[in-house]
């Protein structure tokens, strides 16, 4: 079971997670009863990187239209900032007393908080990226709801013109997202849904065309044609709703699948 739900987050945090575990093990094995090296320089490097993340994160939360990101990002950034402060304290304490136990504890706590805080920042960002895709999926659903009122070729041309770019963007975005997910079942479901949407889209257009043709001729079989069109539209909507649902799942929602 992967801990991180995207490969991007995993690739960033996994090496640190391993190092933190290693540090904790060394501490627990009692091998740490020796002098700590001077940590001033590596801690300074961490602080500098944290300052940069806080700057980038604050700029992002100021400029975004995403209200959830605006609300969640500062809190996540504060955690990382706090963690960096713990590391600075650890370096100061160990410089005064290289055998200092509080220094070692602060180093472990600070490292853990850095990991957790950075993870939170990345999750806030990731969730915001997912919301963008979900928004496009919802826009596609809105366009699909128009299908039932299209009754002439001119409107159908406009419908296709409106639907095509957003549908194409959704499929590309979802495919990209799917590739980044670490959860195999989520990947499979999303791939299946995208394939269904891609298959159904031209069939839906075709059914709309048939409906319009029948309507403009003798009208015989128009009810069946409308039924067929509505069915296809409903199927596409179902697939898009499933995409929306799965996109918002993380590996922590695993229980839902049991």
């Amino acid at each position: 079971m992967p801990v991180f739900h995207t490969k991007t987050i995993e690739s960033i945090l996994e090496p640190v997670a391993q190092q933190v575990s290693r540090l904790v093990i060394i501490h627990e094995e009692g091998e740490a009863g020796h002098e700590m090296p001077d940590l001033e320089r590596p801690v300074f490097a961490v602080s500098k990187a944290v300052t940069n993340l806080v700057k980038v994160g604050r700029e992002m939360s100021t400029s975004t239209d995403d209200l959830i990101l605006k609300q969640d990002m500062p809190q996540a950034l504060n955690k990382v900032d706090e963690a960096a402060r713990l590391l600075v304290e650890a370096a100061k304490l160990s410089k005064i007393d290289p055998l200092s136990k509080p220094a070692r504890m602060k180093l472990i706590e600070g490292s853990r908080w850095i990991l957790q805080g950075t993870s939170n920042v990345l999750l806030v960002f990731d969730e915001s990226e997912v919301r963008k895709i979900v928004q496009d999926c919802k826009k596609t659903l809105d366009y699909l709801s128009v299908a039932e009122v299209v009754e002439n070729m001119e409107d159908l041309v406009q419908f296709v013109r409106d639907l095509s770019p957003i549908l194409s963007r959704v499929t590309v975005e979802v495919c990209k997202r799917t590739e980044d997910l670490t959860h195999q079942i989520h990947r499979e479901v999303l791939n299946r849904c995208v394939e269904q949407v891609k298959t159904l889209a031209p069939i839906l257009i075709c059914s709309m065309k048939i409906f319009i043709q029948i309507l403009s001729q003798d009208g015989k079989g128009v009810e069946e044609a409308a039924e067929n069109r509505n069915y296809l539209c409903g199927r596409m909507s179902e697939e898009l709703n499933e995409i929306i649902r799965v996109l918002q799942l993380t590996t922590y929602d695993e229980d839902e699948w049991d």
Partner: peptide, 29 residues
Amino acid sequence: ELILDAAKSIASATAALIKAASEAQRELV
């Protein structure tokens, strides 16, 4: 994205810090 690069920098700096701290401990044992 800038935020991903910034997070990467923190991750590598933190990993380097812990490595420095823990390797020094190991060497002394």
